[in-house]
Amino acid sequence: MPRNLAIVPAYNEQGAIGATVLDIREHAPDFDVLVVDDGSTDDTAALARAAGASVLVLPFNLGIGGAVQAGYKYALERDYDVAVQVDGDGQHDARNIGDLLAYLHTHPELGLVTGSRFIDGEEELGYRSSATRRLGIRFFARVLSTIVGRRVTDPTSGFRMVRRRGIELFARDYPHDYPEVEAVLLLHFHKLKGAEVPVRMRPRTTGVSSINASRSIYYMVKVLLAIFVGLLRARPVVEAGDPAPVAAQQTL
């Protein structure tokens, strides 16, 4: 029996986390649910526990990248075969988890399946985001498609499912701040094939998105830097047996 894990990063999501967990347990019953509480100051952890999820509480706020990576480390330690990432704010519809899993099972050559809002033409399923965001998304879609050599329509989607190999890679190395675009690249560099599956996303009902309008420019510049540095990096992530990526002794 393959073991599946849903990783739900959540930072101050007490308004949505309970419903999100119940949604996953109802619509994707063969998935264990792990909520990564990224240093919340509200009742996120307690409400997630009450809804029946395992909860990994981080001692302080690491940001989305560090929180999600903690989830992949958990998945690696507990020998999960498949891990899917689901936003804690309820934007991802748990009914689509089954679609992603079915697609992964019918395409054994794939290592990554992403839920995309845009795959059916330009019209967004479910809800529309702001014009600047759509422009940025289209820009990164173009850049990413060129690099990975397949059509990527939703580069900022965090609704992502990987197999064992992807779990190992992400547990060892995961991008820091706004990881969606870089994570796709990282798997590409390790020759993991990816594909997109259409999903419907809901507008956020509570809480605040981690990307607001004023940060969009910073986001674009940072991600572009990460993409091009990533392209030039000799080895994108550390493989087993390589020198440790973090060592106290290293100095200039």
Binding site: V55, L56, L62, G66, A70, K73, Y74, V246
Partner: peptide, 16 residues
Amino acid sequence: ADENKLLAQRVGLLQQ
């Protein structure tokens, strides 16, 4: 910062 992140994740995993 990297070491700090690793420690925080490890603390979270152990706590869980």
